[in-house]
Design a binder for these strands. Structure first.
Lengths: 123, 123
DNA sequence: TCGTATCGATTACGTCTGTAGTCGGAGAAT
DNA sequence: ATTCTCCGACTACAGACGTAATCGATACGA
């Protein structure tokens, strides 16, 4: 619901917390993927901003904080997918599908899987 | 190819130029959708930034410039779709499809259309 | 020819983002 | 009790973004 945008850097933090939570700031820093080699202060700044955006929450445990997501990954993913579809495809999903299909981004396995999903949905 | 990001505001300008080009800055301003009620200087700033990003180009015609896209809408759309899929779905399209399917974002008409597309692709 | 409207360029400025340093307080070690 | 260390909070700062004013040159109307 809280519709502040989550930036790319912030998303990297969210991914860590979605995988495991609650975690301390130090824990989060330790779990950063290799290509995101941030200093601890940077991680803390990002955590503060996510707190301000109400995307995460923290609970004091003695002297330190444990952070956990407030918004679910699924909600976020839905929100962002919708944003893309709204921005580029007039809010309709089909043009995105058609576009990707045209771009040959679908493997044979994908196609089989999609057919299976469609069958399920029809029942 | 030129991979500078196009911002939301800039995208509104691109959409106008994709629909019709070349246009002067004043033309572009006149075609803004109602909810984007920008001043002419704002439009010109955005055009300059798009020029700097090499997303558009301009040609002098006497005292004024005519602006036209350098990147195609399809290329942009492909790029942004890929970006979303990379960011949120590990670079694979299927999870996006499955996600949207779960969210019931597909109408019956969509499903029929998708089946048709799949048939086409298989041949 | 002289003002005036116009155009592109330059400058402005607050917010957001990416990245990080510093400070003050609370625990831990001695 | 005193020092050292670690934590969260605050501050910093450059670049991008949204939005716009101003300036200098130019062309058109009078």
């Amino acid at each position: 619901m809280s519709s502040e945008r989550i930036s790319d850097a912030e998303l990297a933090i969210m991914e860590i917390l979605w995988e495991q939570a609650p975690l301390t700031a130090t824990d989060v820093a330790a779990r950063l993927p290799d290509e995101r080699d941030w200093s601890l202060p940077t991680v803390k700044t990002l955590l503060s901003r996510l707190l301000a955006k109400e995307a995460i929450e923290h609970r004091a445990e003695g002297r330190r904080f444990f952070y956990a997501p407030r918004i679910g990954r699924d909600d976020y993913v839905t929100h962002e997918s919708k944003r893309l579809v709204d921005r580029l495809f007039g809010g309709r999903f089909m043009p995105l599908f058609a576009h990707l299909a045209e771009q040959d981004k679908l493997s044979d396995a994908d196609i089989t899987e999609i057919e299976r999903l469609l069958q399920e949905m029809k029942s």
